[in-house]
Design a protein around this nucleic acid. Structure first.
Lengths: 213, 213
DNA sequence: TTTCATAGTTGACGATCATTCATTTTTGGC
DNA sequence: GCCAAAAATGAATGATCGTCAACTATGAAA
């Protein structure tokens, strides 16, 4: 047993390869899981697409579930950043919040690949809560300070909204609710911010600039 | 052993056995799934507890998922009936609705056995939507007619509420949200009915008669 | 009562897949 | 080059869902 602590160099070949492997695994898992669903995606296929051995996956993720969570976190984080880029210049923080949740709904119901992930509602809702939460909760608070919203428990409102939003997306993609209800869905969710029903509908119906890449 | 007289009994031995088997399967599945979780419950163990062969399960349910759905439907249906029995005499339909969703939340977070089922959020939310929906949507409409609520899309409000409610229950059982937030959660969900935030909090905080057996 | 077609039941088996682990390969300091 | 530690590998493991060919119970008809 050697005394010197083997501190690895800040950026060695190993670190680079590990970043590459991890990224490749998340990307491969995302593609396959979104194409055929989380359950039907096999670890072997994911490993093959990421060009690593089957056992290597477990050096990076403790289980298939943890890999799926990492995929969903990445998705939600990226979507959050894209929303942030568009809404950065909005004056009305209430509108920023509304744009955010509307964009999630639209993305979920328009992109066929999202539909597969919706069947893990609680996981995707939790990833959404954590990854987009900093933005959303900030907007809820700022809009409240500006007198647009009246939210006393922003984190709770955001928690409930994520679950309801994913549930609504699922209901639309499974045909239980028509896609034309989107405005009404957003309006109902905005009601949890303390804005009135009429103001909520108006906010939900505003025209929206397109999402960037 | 032969009762020769009745040639065509309206319900033969087969029908009786099938009812028995189906009920026993749902009961066995409920017990085992609630104890160790849907995923960890094996079809073999369920079949054994119901005292039928392993293959027999598939005469009644196309898959494990369908069996889990049947379990959840039964649970939700029974809970709906128990709520109905208590609220039958309430004058205020808004209060009936509030009592219903509060009771679901309380049941979910108090009964340890429910916690396991919450990890299939979209399935339990859907079962709740369908089994308790007739009551809940009726109450939303009646309360609106009485001027207590202002709901124009009762089914949508109920759909969003089920998902949010299950999400909230999960957040509490996993310790992400304190159980003391229950009042606030119910109040937020009541906001979707068009009642104001203050009235929602008041309604959520009212004392409730206990649920019967 | 006996016979028989049908419907229901059975449990061993096939197929699939997440995860493990003994072995091999790579790495980076000496 | 050499070596110990870290990382990667992929064949093997174990568990489980769902299938199926054989078996049994049922009840109507002979």
């Amino acid at each position: 047993m050697t005394n010197n602590a083997p501190s690895p160099p800040p950026d060695g070949r190993v670190a680079r390869r590990q970043r590459r492997n991890r990224d490749a695994l998340i990307e491969a898992a995302r593609d396959i899981m979104m194409e055929k669903g989380v359950d039907s995606a096999t670890m072997l296929e994911i490993a093959a697409r990421a060009d690593v051995g089957a056992g290597t996956v477990y050096n990076y993720f403790k289980s298939k579930d943890e890999l799926a969570i990492a995929v969903l976190e990445t998705l939600m984080h990226q979507l959050g950043l894209r929303i942030e880029a568009v809404t950065k210049t909005f004056d009305d923080h209430a509108q920023v919040y509304a744009y955010g949740i509307r964009t999630v709904l639209d993305t979920a119901i328009q992109d066929v690949r999202w539909a597969q992930m919706l069947h893990r509602s609680e996981v995707i809702a939790d990833a959404m809560f954590r990854m987009m939460g900093p933005f959303a909760i900030r907007d809820l608070r700022l809009a409240s300070q500006a007198g647009r919203f009246q939210v006393s428990h922003a984190d709770l409102v955001w928690r409930l909204t994520t679950h309801a939003l994913i549930g609504a997306s699922l209901a639309i993609t499974t045909g239980q609710v028509p896609a034309s209800s989107a405005d009404q869905i957003i309006a109902q969710l905005l009601c949890m911010t303390g804005i009135g029903p009429e103001a909520a509908l108006e906010l939900a119906g505003r025209s929206r600039p397109p999402l960037g890449v």
